[in-house]
Design a protein around this nucleic acid. Structure first.
Lengths: 348, 348
DNA sequence: TTGTAAGCGTTATCAT
DNA sequence: ATGATAACGCTTACAA
């Protein structure tokens, strides 16, 4: 029975109880090949009766590996990120790794701090989605790392050794924009974050590419590059829809932005799919169950996490040679929010 | 500069470089009161120039505290849980604690395994939402713990020392059911998980209490106690709405269940708020942006996480005496999904 | 196959 | 105020 006394029993107690050496206990616990059946039985019995449990802290210190990976994300409460974490978590703990999850709350200064702390905790690897790819402090902290790093949907020039999971946001955004143009729109607004993260640069490129391909100048006056938040989505929507030459279609560059856009549109009494077309990124319950359903640029976030974890494990056990880049697709789901029968005439 | 050579510098390297003893370096690092200004300066300079970084592993082993807490949750990808984790994470890392997040994927067997692993990792405390309160293995693993535990929305009789965050699901459900009864419904269906977790028992009690108070027998034939999943929500909805004496109102006992219910209703071509009234638990974007918006039993999940973390910290630093129970309210948000002008007549 | 002993990088106790 | 030194619990050469 597990004693309720002083402190947790160690291999020493087990060794004493079994009348063998410390090292023998250790060998049994780590099932080393060179242990006799009788030794194994004796030790196992003693482990049981003294109620021994391994101290992973001590073994990590000695072995030089913590079997822990750090996961740095800007916002766990965002279902998209949660889903990435979930995907990663599943493959990690199937291989015995634990995940230390830290969230910067989209605060770039906190990114640095968290990375440093994870390094001090001696994690065996890191999966990160930093809030700002260009922040020198963050890059420096990542550079000090001597364990593998996987960047999720981020791109950092000063970090040549990191593997990357790169979602192809450009293609999805280009398809969506092309779709809107074909539906007769040219006054298309894009509301998304600043360009200090790859997805935004990617989407912006896709957005403009669609216009170029159609031989139309992109409506630069309708592009809003601020943040991924709902409040930003709402205020931009309000502002845009009060423009004299207001947009006939809106593209929300993220699930939180979408919530703000919807709020803004509702407040103005504008009907989606009738008064204004709407496209969003990431297929969430809202986009599916809204009426009309919202046309969406979808991707597989769960898989994103899985791939990130697998890349990291490959780097850790050195089964992969150098840094890898893994691409993941986006696809356009056309739904009612962009299929109004009559495109509203742009006001003069 | 941080050397790119063999292995990370330790306090020994710092001590050698500064020409002082190991213990002096340690004292500076932990800013012990008894260090002269000159010593501090010397050591700090050496730390800088050899590029020393503390090894939290070693210090944890020695100190007997890891400054890490374990967080066990059934499903990170569920935004509700993610939000709880986020709340906890915020208060924890403001006090220097890191969070090891593990998800059982609603698999009760995995709960046990994860708890054991967290114990082996010597976490300083645990916040858990187990998948099954009654599973003996889980209770046993929790019992072996000699660090504090906080249960979130769970109740385990065999664990008298644990603090508990208990959301008052009963009151919210009772209010919702009463509201439906007042709207003229009696054929009200409830779709939720099995009763092996507290929220479900709580909601069930509230549901029945509303009927008792109204002097009506609760429709026991319309209660479905299976799981919190979307697929369960969908299959129950389909089954229920094919009943001869089918329900005129549906209560979804969770955000995932709601998604299934919506799918089921859409497939049958039933209009929410017209053909059938609908109530859900937890105020998510879907419930807000659905048309009509869905009447919801809301709670503050972010706060749930915060409170859990605070309770745990109180237990860890022994600022609180014994196990605490912290109650959190639910409130009913009445919206369009339960306000149809005409209540459909129950078919004979 | 088993035992002995030297670390892993800290912190804390004890002298000085 | 500072310096030796013994833990913390484990793994791993190396010896037997």
């Amino acid at each position: 029975m597990p004693d309720a006394e002083n402190r947790a029993p160690t291999i020493k107690e087990v060794a004493d109880h079994a009348g063998v050496a410390l090292s023998s206990v250790s060998r049994v616990v780590n099932d080393h090949p060179d242990v006799s059946a009788s030794m194994r039985r004796k030790v196992l019995a003693s482990i049981e009766s003294v109620g021994y449990e391994p101290n992973l802290l001590a073994s990590s210190l000695r072995r030089g590996s913590t079997m822990t990976i750090g996961f740095l994300i800007s916002d766990i409460s965002n279902p998209l990120f949660a889903s990435i974490a979930n995907g990663a978590s599943r493959v990690l703990d199937s291989t015995g790794y634990a995940m230390v999850l830290t969230s910067s709350g989209s605060d770039a200064a906190k990114d640095e701090e968290m990375i440093r702390l994870l390094r001090w905790r001696r994690v065996d690897g890191l999966i990160v989605t930093v809030a700002d790819e260009e922040r020198p402090g963050t890059i420096a902290e990542l550079g000090r790392l001597d364990v593998p790093v996987v960047l999720v949907d981020r791109e950092i020039a000063g970090l040549p050794d990191a593997s990357v999971v790169r979602t192809d946001h450009a293609t999805g955004m280009r398809a969506a924009t092309t779709h809107l143009i074909r539906e007769g729109h040219t006054r298309i607004a894009l509301i998304t974050s600043a360009t200090n993260v790859r997805p935004t640069r990617d989407r912006l490129a896709g957005f403009r590419a669609a216009f170029s391909a159609a031989g139309v100048a992109p409506p630069e006056d309708l592009i809003r590059l601020g943040s991924f938040s709902a409040t930003y989505g709402e205020s931009c929507t309000t502002e845009l829809m009060h423009l004299a030459d207001r947009p006939t279609a809106l593209v929300a560059g993220g699930n939180l932005v979408l919530e703000g856009v919807l709020r803004g549109l509702y407040d103005l009494g504008l009907r989606i799919g009738e008064d204004v077309a709407l496209v969003s990124c990431d297929d969430t319950p809202i986009t599916q169950f809204h009426s009309p359903p919202i046309t969406t640029i979808a991707r597989d976030t769960e898989r994103t996490g899985e791939v990130a974890a697998k890349l990291l494990l490959g780097l850790i056990d050195e089964s992969t040679t150098g840094p890898q880049i893994e691409g993941l697709p986006t696809r356009l789901l056309v739904r009612g929010s962009t299929q109004s029968r009559h495109v509203p005439a742009a006001r003069a």
